[in-house]
Amino acid sequence: MTSPNRPRSFQEIILRLQNYWAAQGCAVLQPYDMEVGAGTFHPATTLRALGGRSWAAAYVQPSRRPTDGRYGENPNRLQHYYQYQVIIKPSPANLQDLYLGSLRAIGLDPMVHDVRFVEDDWESPTLGAWGLGWEVWCDGMEVSQFTYFQQVGGHDCRPVSGELTYGLERLAMYVLGVEHVMDMPFNDPDAPIPLTYGDIFRQTEREYSRWNFDQADTDTLFQHFKDAEAECARILSADPVDGAGRTIPMAHPAYDQAIKASHIFNLLDARGVISVTERQAYIGRVRALAKACADLFVTTEAAQA
């Protein structure tokens, strides 16, 4: 696996992906500034996958999955991690080749490795979204999710977006040959102040694991969930015409509240206070918000071809 092309750090892998997708014509966006469970929640994916307008974006998205917290001890599991997300609409005919190019860019040469596209259908019950595609295997390890979106927020995707999601830590650990995520070099190991992933995140993983599992105040969270839900509904039902007579429907502010509700639900789930019977109902409520936001978004300027 050693070659001059091999990246030396986590951040170098990210930078190479950024450069690669920039070179392919994607707008390199910045992470969304809210807590989300996956890069798909970024409005650049969820909302922009809707409607007829062409789109190409790539970005890192910090993602939070409270139930995956392991106090920084598990070599692979984190409650906060990074996804690299690429979304292109309409999906280009050479999307698989573009993807393979990105693997080459980070030092995975498909002539030496065994790269495979293995069936894996994707579904997000909270977003009312699904698609078909694969998980991409490299030497038996899943390194990416590759999906052709068919529906988002209950709307058929026309045209279809192609979505690529890289689990950055896992992919980087493989490329860098690291066994435990906390040992992974974050910046260059020869930098004057070399930092590992653990130097940056071991403490936060411990703190958030405790908070997620034991300390988050559930009454407050339940209240926040209701507040977000109510605010979302209020924004959506607001008169699209403002006081000055301008027509400004507010799909994005409403969607922010849907994201918020989704994350609060994840926190409540980690706290173990959502019963089995309630679980489906909560997911249904978040989905209803996401769908209502999608319904509004498709009527807006950004959704027109």
């Binding site: 309409p90 999906s91 005919a93 595609g133 052709y148 068919q150 995707c157 045209p159 279809v160």
Partner: peptide, 12 residues
Amino acid sequence: MRWGAGSLRWVR
């Protein structure tokens, strides 16, 4: 599924 801007359905 559908893909790109077309409407044909195939497995991929």
